[in-house]
Amino acid sequence: MTAKTINLTLKVWRQGRGEPIGRLETCRAENISKDMSFLEMIDVVNEQLTKDHQEPIAFDHDCREGICGMCGAVVNGRPHGHERETTLCQLHMRHFSDGDTIVIEPWRARAFPVIKDLVVDRSALDQIIQAGGYISVNTGGAPDANSLPIPKDTADAAFVPAACIGCGACVAACPNASAMLFVGAKVSQLSLLPQGRPEAAKRVSSMVRKMDELGFGNCSNETECEAECPKGISIIQIARMNREFFKARFS
């Protein structure tokens, strides 16, 4: 029987609001139950910091069940930590060992400025969606839902990229800080479905242009994004977006 609790050393990125650069600060995480999630471990550390009249570590989080996309930090160099297809809130401490030192940093990308500590501004992702990540339909005159049969394979294929939670781990993982996986996921979902075809060319051109404008880098096929995506979204979606992009250029 292994012990149920572990003790850890954390090196956490601390950066005040408006500070141009932060620093790694060391603190202890004592008596951490292995059943805790990573964020619950930070909660425990923050409770202690508060009791010691120090400022707790700022970090984004909300649903804590891996679906809202709000949480995320680079843990020992890997976005959302080392477990595959796992958000930080679903990373459990049973995957760490007693005595470990854990380095925790915010997403690093020019398009994601740090607000405070581990909190970054990801509104650039909203701006990319505003550039066309939707089907232009007003509320009202939709026909009966079953009037448009969609082959199950197509619907299932569209669902795969639709599972993107918009957390930004793909950007943080990419050496170029590219948002190609994020954009590719939305472009793929909508271009696979017949409802999305009328705007397909305009959508892909506009979203890619916006991504470039916002300071995200380009894709150089490192595939780091795919390795770190908590929803297991594959670079196939980038390939499909590229095809849509060329089609849009040459049509």
Binding site: V137, A142, A145
Partner: peptide, 20 residues
Amino acid sequence: IIDHCVSQGIPFARDYGGFL
């Protein structure tokens, strides 16, 4: 609601005939 959401491109589960 279902009609509108399908027109928005929401990938609801479908059967092999392509219906919801």
